[in-house]
Amino acid sequence: MNVRPVVFAKAPQPGRVKTRLIPALGPDGAAALARRLLRHTLTEALAAGFGPVELCASPDPAHPAWKETALPPGLVLTPQGDGDLGARMARAARRHIDTGRAVVLLGTDCPALTCGRLRRIAAALHQGQAVLVPALDGGYVALGLSRFHPALFEAIAWGGDAVAATTCARLRRLGWRFHCLPPLADIDRPGDLRHLPATWRICR
């Protein structure tokens, strides 16, 4: 099965990313951590060996903020476009699924998301239509899909603590076979900084 990782990310500009971490890290420190997380996620997605990795970017990839951001080779850059997070993810998912590819939708908040875990997601997609990796805060770290349905993206309180539970409930209502892998920690708030790898402590 052809699997396309799609990484959703904002350009790591001070004051515009990881704003809930600014009280702990300051604007520059929060942006530095966002940059590190972005690089980690892209590197691990490329190392998983699925082929090209798509960076679905905000703002548009032509924006000067992206020209100032060092990105690894092997990426396909696309704009996120308009709408809430659900609408943006739905467009990206449908675009690939309609051409016969499976898709793994990723954020950049999880340092524990490794190439090995991405390969586990891809392997699980061979046995079902969806794979969910919940986040400890109630969201999700990754969503793998080999089929598309808009109900997975509509009328969800993104950023809330029931995103993963709502998505699982909708997958069950659709009657799809799906796998829910062990939850991982996102780095969103000052209390989450304890989940950073020891070698990343410099970001604090």
Results as ranks from 00 to 15, higher is better:
Val3Glu: 02
Phe8Gly: 03
Ala9Glu: 00
Lys10Asn: 07
Ala11Tyr: 02
Ala11Glu: 01
Pro12Leu: 01
Pro12Ala: 02
Pro14His: 02
Pro14Tyr: 02
Ile22Gly: 07
Ala24Asn: 05
Leu25Ile: 05
Gly26Phe: 01
Gly26Arg: 03
Ala30Met: 03
Ala31Arg: 04
Ala32Val: 05
Arg35Asn: 15
Leu38Met: 13
Leu38Tyr: 12
His40Lys: 07
Thr41Glu: 11
Leu46Ile: 11
Gly51Gln: 14
Pro52Glu: 15
Glu54Arg: 13
Leu55Met: 09
Cys56His: 15
Ala57Asp: 06
Pro61Trp: 11
Ala65Val: 14
Gly74Cys: 10
Gly74Asn: 11
Leu75Asn: 11
Val76Lys: 10
Leu77Gln: 15
Pro79Trp: 12
Gln80Phe: 13
Gly81Tyr: 10
Gly83Met: 08
Gly83Ser: 06
Gly83Ile: 07
Gly86His: 01
Gly86Asp: 02
Met89Thr: 09
Met89Ile: 09
Ala90His: 06
Arg91Ile: 11
Ala92Thr: 12
Ile97Asn: 03
Thr99Val: 00
Arg101Ala: 11
Val103Glu: 09
Leu106Thr: 02
Thr108Asp: 09
Asp109Glu: 12
Asp109Arg: 09
Cys110Phe: 05
Arg117Phe: 07
Ala123Ile: 00
Gln127Tyr: 06
Leu132Met: 14
Leu132Cys: 13
Leu132Pro: 10
Ala135Met: 11
Leu136Ala: 15
Asp137Val: 14
Tyr140Trp: 15
Val141Trp: 06
Leu143Asp: 12
Ala155Gly: 12
Gly159Pro: 05
Gly160Cys: 09
Asp161Ile: 08
Ala162Leu: 12
Ala162Gly: 11
Arg172Gln: 13
Arg172Cys: 08
Arg173Glu: 14
Trp176His: 14
Trp176Pro: 14
Phe178Thr: 11
Phe178Asn: 06
His179Asp: 12
Leu181Lys: 06
Pro183Thr: 02
Asp186Gly: 07
Asp188Arg: 13
Arg189Ala: 10
Arg189Pro: 01
Pro190Ala: 05
Leu193Ile: 00
Arg194Leu: 00
Arg194Met: 00
Ala198Tyr: 00
Thr199Pro: 00
Cys203Phe: 10
Cys203Val: 04
Arg204His: 11
Arg204Val: 03
